[in-house]
Simulated scan of single mutants.
Amino acid sequence: MSDDLVFYTHPMSRGRIVRWMLEEVGTTYRTEIMGYGPAMKEPGYRAINPLAKVPSLVHRGVTVTETAAICAYLADAFPEAGLAPAPGDPERGAYYRWLFFGAGPVEAAVTNKALGVEVPDDPRMRAMVGYGSLAEVLDALEGAVSGREYLAGGRFSAADLYVGSHLMWGMQFGSIETRPAYEAYVARLADRPAALRARDIDDRLVAEASQG
């Protein structure tokens, strides 16, 4: 495995999204499995990710953390994979828009719901949290994935991978309500060869860990 690209992850983490992205990119990479707890808090790993969390990526000396940032970085670092509209392409705007809509409003709204945090029904309070309400976020997301095959430029991109991952995970575990538009959208993504490879790798790692 190449030391040019090192992927720090845990198979039961958002690292599963990055694993899928790496498999889409199709380059060689080395995986470092980080255990939760003390292993992630060691000074050596904190030098890579000060928050002591996964995933993280080191590519030829460049460190990238935060899942959406890693996906965007990989799309640009490996343009031959065609995972982002080219700079100057008008669809680049939609690509950035929905990639970071997933990383911002979707993640924040869904996390708050899981924690039982309710945004008061007050326009000033909604403005403070940025995303408004979970219902508004889910409606916007439904509009984004309806009436088009992919989010940007009529072809699969890192934005679809990231947003689709949140929808798959959220609907599976009940943190995002199931809607026909979501189901139709993720059905176009879930059986991609890279998605299947990534899922197989991480599921196998989970099974091996459970066996001791």
Rank of each mutant, 00 (worst) to 15 (best):
H10M: 01
D76M: 11
Y162G: 04
P105I: 04
V163R: 03
F78C: 13
Y96K: 04
L134F: 02
S13K: 01
M40S: 12
R14A: 10
K113P: 08
R126Q: 11
F156Q: 00
V62A: 10
R60T: 10
E136C: 01
R192Q: 03
A69N: 10
T67A: 14
F173K: 04
V106A: 02
R126H: 06
E80P: 07
E80S: 15
E142S: 13
G104L: 04
P120Q: 09
M128T: 08
Y131K: 00
P85Q: 09
D202R: 02
F7N: 05
N49M: 10
F156C: 02
G130M: 01
A84L: 12
Y162M: 09
M128A: 15
F156E: 00
G130I: 00
K113M: 12
G130R: 01
W98V: 05
S2F: 04
A69L: 15
R188N: 02
G44F: 04
A159D: 14
M34T: 04
M168Y: 14
D200H: 07
A152W: 00
F78V: 09
G61V: 06
D200W: 10
I17N: 12
F156L: 11
I201M: 06
A108M: 07
Y162C: 06
S175T: 12
M12P: 02
F101S: 00
A77C: 07
A158S: 15
V64I: 14
P123H: 03
M171G: 15
E24Q: 12
G44S: 15
K41L: 11
E23L: 10
Y96E: 06
R148W: 05
P38R: 06
T31D: 03
T27E: 12
V119G: 08
V106R: 04
G26K: 07
P123R: 05
D202V: 08
D3S: 15
F101T: 00
R192G: 01
T65W: 06
G132F: 00
M40W: 06
P38T: 04
A39P: 07
R188A: 01
Y45F: 12
G143Y: 01
E91P: 06
A84N: 06
T111K: 14
S2G: 07
E136S: 14
V145T: 02
S56Y: 15
Y131T: 00
I201F: 12
M171I: 08
R92A: 12
D191K: 04
P85V: 14
A52Q: 09
T65L: 14
A47D: 11
G44Y: 02
M21L: 14
V25K: 05
A140H: 04
A195Y: 13
T28C: 14
D121C: 05
L51M: 15
R16F: 08
M40G: 09
L205H: 08
